[in-house]
Design a protein around this nucleic acid. Structure first.
Lengths: 235, 235
DNA sequence: GGTCGATAGTCCGGAACCGTACCGAAAGGC
DNA sequence: GCCTTTCGGTACGGTTCCGGACTATCGACC
């Protein structure tokens, strides 16, 4: 049996012991390797996920093939929140951007439990609100910030969800996430490297100075993060 | 007493008569003139709104002053959905982009009623899901579409929520909504006018050919709209 | 009917970013 | 150790859009 004190997921640790007890018997531990698909767009959702480590990308795609990341979450959140909103599917991809582990339970079980406890439901819905804020912030910065700022924001969001200062990611993946050219990412990385904020090696990015990186991200970073702290707790 | 058959709001008309009966006694009719503010960012929300006519802009703002529209709704939706998600405030502005009318009720009354009927709550939550999809689509097109396409999308979304082919809007307002320069909007309008898709006069835009306008919007338009039809019904 | 603020048309140089491509270097498989 | 694949650095011309400004025109109001 899983004990609440061993959990890293902020939504699960934030539950009352009673609410956690409702979920615990159904939580199935699962390895979540890089590229593991949590949600297939426009297909019925079978499982709901609570991430313990690693990071998930939520990606929207246009019919012309172009796609862009609209949000990320890790141990701060849960996967397939859309089932909470009464839809068993969504048009967005969700997959592990950085490998890790977590728990899953069937969407059916989850919905049954949610109906038993309004406090548990409210915790999950507060996360939906924060995630909406993050998506809105993404819309904002995609329309008004230069690539360097958006990259800095992405690196910060990544660091918030992983304990490591260094994490695996290629320019190519970043270019898909940010919706820009691969070589534009390379250029932006060089800019941040030139300011000694990060250090990039093949397939990896390392944060050298988090505080100054936040300054480089400027107004692009912070609003959804403040909302998370207000409604759920520290990241 | 307000009767359901007289209502234009799609969420209210989609409710069962019993669920509508729970809300009806609390609905207060209200004129919603242009620029009327429904939600002040980071301030407690007093009222929840159901729009009957007109259109609301939801706008996210960066601390450097730049802001951008992250979504719109009208008779298809409700205002201040964030109270459904357990937060009495949100970082986003909401104001009437195009004047109209609607109903409001206090957030407290609304939450009490929502707790009484899970079918009513589910209807509202399905709208939250669709609105999230719209925000995600905005993030997508802000990052990957040229202004002309984004403008076409905006005009289509406006038409979906108003019965009129013509509606009042200035280039200046559009530039704030799309997050671009005012004169870039002028240029994009001229492009669409050149293809005989719209006709712009001082302070107004008129749709000449909706079908071809959808083609001009390309892959920017359609995903959230399909999700609305799937989960709630025709616009 | 004239004045004035709001709205729209236009122009300039320049910055950001794109599409595409080529090449070298690092990592991984055999 | 060699070969293949993946990844990153760089280059080029071209397009989109920006920041800023100036002017023309419309419509509301006195």
């Amino acid at each position: 049996m899983i004990e609440q004190k061993d959990i890293h997921n902020r939504l699960l640790t934030g539950l009352s012991p009673a609410d956690f007890g409702l979920l615990a018997p159904f939580l199935e531990h699962i390895e979540l390797d890089r590229d593991y698909v949590l949600v297939i767009p426009n297909k019925p959702i079978e499982y709901v996920y609570f991430i313990e480590s690693g990071m998930v990308s939520v990606v929207a795609e246009k019919s012309d093939g172009r796609s862009i990341e609209v949000g990320v979450y890790g141990r701060d959140g849960m996967g397939a929140t859309t089932v909470l909103l009464g839809s068993d599917q969504t048009p967005h991809h969700q997959f592990m951007q950085i490998g890790g582990a977590g728990f899953r339970l069937s969407a059916v079980d989850f919905l049954r439990i949610v109906d038993q406890s309004s406090t548990l439901r409210n915790m999950m819905l507060r996360f939906v609100h924060v995630f909406m804020t993050q998506t809105a912030q993404t819309a904002l910065v995609n329309g008004s910030s230069v690539i360097e700022e958006r990259l800095a924001r992405w690196v910060l969001m990544c660091h918030d969800r992983l304990d490591a200062l260094e994490f695996p990611i290629t320019h190519d993946f970043l270019s898909m996430m940010l919706g820009v050219r691969r070589s534009s990412v390379t250029d932006a990385i060089h800019l941040l490297e030139g300011e000694m904020l990060i250090k990039a090696t093949r397939g990896h990015i390392k944060i050298l100075n988090r505080q100054r990186l936040e300054r480089a991200a400027g107004a692009s970073y912070g609003v959804p993060e403040a909302e998370y702290r207000r409604l759920i707790g520290p990241l």
